[in-house]
Design a protein around this nucleic acid. Sequence first.
RNA 1: GGAGCUGUGGCUCAGUGGUAGAGCGUUCGGCUUACAUCCGAAAGGUCGCGGGUUCGAUCCCUGCCAGCUCCACCA
Length: 868
Amino acid sequence: MKELSKAYEPKNYEDNIYKKWEESGLFNPDVCVKQRFTKKNAKPFSIVLPPPNVTGTLHMGHAAMLAIEDVMVRYHRMKGDRTLWVPGTDHAAIATQAKVEKLVMEKEGKTKYDLGRDEFLKRVESFAQESHDTIVNQSRKMGASLDWSREAYTLDEKRNLAVRTVFKKMYDDKLIYRGYRVINWSVKGQSTVSDDELVHVERPGKLYYFKYSKDFPITIATTRPETKLGDTAVAVNPKDARYKKYIGQEFVVDVGAAAPLKIKIIADENIELEFGTGALGVTPAHSSVDFEMYQKQKADGNDIGLIQVISEDGKMTAAAGKDYAGLTVLAAREKFVEYLRKNNLLEKEEDIVQNVGTSDRFGDVIEPLPKTQWFIDVNKPIKSRGKKTLKQLMQKAVGNKKGQIEIIPDRFNKTYFHWIDNLRDWCISRQIWYGHQIPVWYKGEEVFVGVEAPRGEGWQQDPDTLDTWFSSGLWTFSTLGYPDLKASDLKNYHPTSVMETGYDILFFWVARMILMTTYVLDDIPFKKVYLHGLVRDEKGQKMSKSLGNVIDPLDMINKYGTDATRLSLLVGNTPGNDMKLSEEKIAGFRNFTNKLWNISRFMLLNIENPKIDIKKPKAKTLADEWILEGLDKVIQETSKNIEEFNFSMVGEKLRDFTWSELADWYLEIAKVEGKKSEILNYILNTILKLWHPYMPFVTEAIWQEVYGADKTLMVEPWMGVKKANPTAKGFNDIINTITSIRSLRAEYKIEPAKKIGAHVNAGKKEKLLRNNQEIIKSLARLESLEFVKTGAEVSLDLAGAVDVAKEKPRLEKEIAELKKYTAGLENKLLNKEFVSNAPKEVVEKEKGKLNEAKSKLEKLEEQLNNLK
RNA sequence: GGAGCUGUGGCUCAGUGGUAGAGCGUUCGGCUUACAUCCGAAAGGUCGCGGGUUCGAUCCCUGCCAGCUCCACCA
């Protein structure tokens, strides 16, 4: 066997190990079955990776996602489950196109129109390909055990077929419709944007109070005077005494628009009496609220009309009048306000803070305007789904009943349901070029919707593309073989076990997957949703290029290794809460990685002939018993906590066991007790397995150094543990004793081999006493103290060197405090209410505490007597 | 305007209905032949503030203060 180097060098191992894993094919569950690492009829465990956008590189958030999912996947694979983790990337329509547009402009000074659709798409595709390659390589660097043979792309052929199939199905069910509506328009992006992609930004604004004309009876208030050129009504609350009398009347006013405006006074209950003047100028073309009023009126047989005064290029239309046509919105606003002022129509200007909707991707202010678009109707009863609407399907899918999706942490249930309650029809068409082109063809008045293009000449496909979340919504099943409903992956792995993703895309994505899956497959897409927090910098700020606070996972991997980087993202945070990450934290875990390496190195020096298959050996000493019990406990806890998504807890407990118990105590004792080959071999194998899901590289590196490069830890079976009664309790007494010796020695600056007083109550059992003596003897030697045995009591009697003057008050103080404490406990146990009301275990625990305190008190009093 | 989260030692965060834990940092002492990416010891907290429930609350309820986040068609 090769001797391990002094320090673990991740770079010497990681890439090779990953390559070996990948070549072994064992990321693929079919191969695991074929090679008999997994039973054919094993329980499935599946995760579909949230596909990163092909807009660049992976950031720490992705790294966290990969680490968390890889932990689950590796754990379940070792446990023997038929484990599948499907990788993929997302074409991220708008985001990718916007990025490439920017790049093309920077590099060539050209717009997408200069290049034309085909040429521009070629640029996007090559950019996407490059991003994809980077992302895939980074995922490998993270050690992610993804089944690359099943890799998918949201815009590849198979996914495109899934998209067309679902579109057609929804169209046939009349869930998808084409409608003329006020939509969110991004002038910069020249496309619609969905409600969810709108980001509301607070801005200082002005509220203008004015009248359309001198003899118009009602003053209205607006933040957007320029749109008033397209007003067709004034809405007031029907309960408003001030305006009641005008309801139903029509006024004709000339404000300089192309034609005089016919303003009808209408009633609407949503108008607030308190805001502004309590009257709202209705602009059906440029406000979705106003548009809804317009539709409502129209349904009631009262067409108030709609005038579009702003066009898609963000400029005023001819309908706005010759003074305004062609002006930008802002210029028109100034001009119109000036007009009002001149004609004494402007009554008041008020500074207010207003919320402006901006486009997340393009960054500009969203212009609501009317346009014919494709929508998904979320309120239409679906025959094949028991007349439930999409909204209802989404509501029914989540909860804590069997067959429902459990969201972790559960507080996001509330967020989810609230979102559904406020959900409106989803605008799915985009005027961008990169994406799934809508499978609709036109020929004159004819419309054809189909999975494949229609036969015959003269058909023109709809130029629009689909919202990127449409294809993402199909992700859990489009990656598993859909639309082939008999596909084995779909049967074997759907619904997936867990969806692990950031809480920031709960609406965008998780909800859409639930919508699509419940509708298309009449099933849930995943059994559980685990939401992780965002990775922030050490100050809690979002990491961003402009702030310059981005920690690049690759840099950290280069500097500290993958395992350390993974641990830093797994330990020290809880689900759904953001985590702050600093380089120091990663460096800390690098130290631990090295510690594990050295622990293994030491153990190997004491293992005669390392074996993979080694059963739990019998304990020969109390120390052995203690560490084996500790190991059993940590095995249990690790399994339980991974299954319950307490990833941080697992790391902490394992680290504590490995470092504080195994390395600091057991291995030290092993040095003096010696002859522990079998036990050490067993412990080594076990902790390497336990750590493998968290630190796949260093554990695999050690494993292969020890057992040969043809072996792999990755598919070694996970351990089960039978519950056992702890018998090595006495060992903790010993630890405490030694600790107090060390402490006293430090306090009194006693050199090794000098005398110092400390006692240990060895307990009552003979066997325990014998064992304790052995260990204490050993540890006394370790501590360079003189070991003295007196009757049934074991003591390390080195009293001579103790400074009585100093020690006496210390002991007295400690005794006094302890007496107070025991008195308190005794009182508590005498309290009938406590004894009868508190759970039995709690009472027992308190009794235990009391006994412990009493014996400690005895010891201290004895020490005090010895001093005297 | 609604909803949610957070507030625990200097920092980052775990945690529990029964007189508080870790890592880092700090101080002191050690190159003890697995590891100085280490070892030993120590200091350091009225668990944001007030009220309630309870035999008992840092943990449950309620109000307040502070920070953060999401949602929303106040024109």
